[in-house]
């Protein structure tokens, strides 16, 4: 009994690590090349669909002529750290980490997904559908769920809203916590564990379609201005040939029948090219928020359950 519990626990805790290793194991069988391209992901994309990621990785491997594996991590901080340390070659990150100052710079914009015709998305403030709250002001003294401390839509935007109001961000909500996963943020609100939450509009709409039993229990009370869609980036250390090759493959997905299937699965129009200035409003928002509250000290380890957060 105890052992099976322990097994459950392990599975639950080290989910991402196990998934990553399984993906790696499969590609070592497919191609014998010893150095696969490592593509970092967080829970921005729908995380439950493991088979989808396997197939996409396989597709990219085919197109790249060398193995590509997706490396999943719980938080953006972890992905950023891995990019910096060189253990990832590419990553799908968020606009907020993208606009943060890095010295020296170690990432470069690769592509921005096109969603509903534009490389843009929003942050939604959601509440339970039965909740009486109509605005973020009504949520004062309630529980609030953030997704990731480096998520634009799931953390920066609500923080910015509170900063704009001039209220004490710490005292505004009764309790706050991070889910590190937009879909779980929706779930927390649907189950009334959180009274309100900030969530990625793309994920929320995706869930409206694929997991309506959760999303339909929530209601949007606030929509942010349009922000640049979470971008794909390459590490600066990766050789240009691979970067260009990857960029071509990613951009060409919309014209390829198989690539089209993956885009359809992700509910995206395409992976397009955009200027880094697309994310300027996020940078501006980050600056305005930060000026009122110094960012906390986030530390992360590869396999910890929760990133230690001091609020």
């Amino acid at each position: 009994m105890k052992r099976s519990w322990a097994a459950c626990l392990c599975l639950f805790v080290f989910l991402s690590a196990i998934m990553a290793s399984s993906v790696r194991a499969e590609h070592e069988e497919v191609a014998q090349t010893p150095a696969p391209i490592r593509f970092g992901l967080t829970a921005v994309v729908v995380r439950e669909n493991l088979r989808f990621l396997d197939q996409w990785a396989y597709y990219l491997s085919e197109k790249m002529g060398q193995p590509v594996e997706f490396v999943r991590r719980r938080s953006y901080r972890e992905v950023m750290d891995m990019l910096e340390s060189g253990s990832l070659d590419f990553a799908w990150i968020c606009g907020f980490p993208f606009v943060q100052n890095r010295d020296p710079e170690f990432i470069k914009l690769l592509s921005v997904p096109v969603y509903k015709g534009r490389p843009l998305y929003h942050s939604f403030i959601i509440v339970h559908k039965d909740s009486p709250h109509q605005s973020i002001d009504d949520l004062k003294g309630e529980n609030f769920a953030y997704s990731d401390p480096e998520s634009n839509s799931g953390y920066l935007y609500p923080q910015y809203l509170l900063a704009q109001k001039g209220t004490n961000k710490e005292a505004f909500f009764r309790q706050t916590f991070f889910t590190f996963n937009h879909s779980e943020t929706v779930e927390a609100v649907a189950e009334q564990f959180a009274d309100g939450a900030a969530v990625d509009s793309y994920i929320w709409e995706y869930m409206k379609e694929f997991r309506p039993e959760l999303a339909d229990k929530t209601r949007v009370i606030n929509q942010s201005p349009a922000f640049g869609f979470p971008p794909l980036v390459s590490r600066l250390g990766v050789d240009l040939e691979t970067v260009w090759h990857m960029k071509r493959v990613i951009l060409a997905m919309k014209d390829d029948p198989d690539g089209r299937k993956f885009l359809d699965g992700l509910k995206l129009d395409s992976f397009g090219e955009s200027s880094p200035s697309l994310f300027d409003n996020i940078r501006e928002m980050a600056l305005k928020t930060r000026s009122t509250q110094p960012r906390g000290d986030f530390s992360a380890s590869n396999q910890s359950v929760g990133t230690a957060i001091k609020e």
Binding site: Q175, F177, E184, A188, V305, G306, E311
Partner: peptide, 13 residues
Amino acid sequence: ENILQSDYWSLYK
């Protein structure tokens, strides 16, 4: 760990 990190969502889960 969840309590110390105020990770109430994981605690709940």
